[in-house]
């Protein structure tokens, strides 16, 4: 699926869309950026509460397509600036990681069904 489809989840608010056509093929949940760096797949959407600008740098390094900042955590101006610079899309949600991941999984499965 593409980044823009994440905006169809009514609980996700897009605060920055860098490239709406960027591909998303999987997801990852994690708040320890050392773990995200080591284990998150490229082309993934990252569910995290780590609303820090380092998250953008790590996303860029790993090739993460978009972030979903969970539990209603606030994204600061410095993080948003970094996201614009590094062209990473950010969504925020009051959902927790599990609930947000379920929404992303449903979108991915729908996408898979469409291509079969």
């Amino acid at each position: 699926m593409r980044v823009e489809e994440l905006a169809t989840v009514k609980e996700f608010e897009a605060i920055h869309i860098a490239d709406k056509d960027r591909a998303v093929s999987t997801g990852y949940c994690g708040d320890l950026l050392s773990d995200v760096m080591a284990n998150a797949p490229a082309q993934s959407v990252l569910m995290t509460i780590q609303a820090h600008k380092n998250t953008i740098a790590v996303a860029s390094l790993v090739g993460i397509s978009a972030l979903v900042i969970c539990n209603g955590r606030t994204v600061g101006a410095d993080m948003l600036d970094a996201a614009r610079e590094e062209e990473i899309s950010i969504f925020v949600t009051d959902l927790n990681h599990f609930e947000a991941a379920a929404k992303v999984m449903a979108l991915l499965e729908r996408g898979d069904a469409g291509t079969h």
Partner: peptide, 9 residues
């Protein structure tokens, strides 16, 4: 900081 934020800001 290294575990949680990946590198030192």
């Amino acid at each position: 900081v290294l575990a949680n934020l990946g590198f030192l800001p």
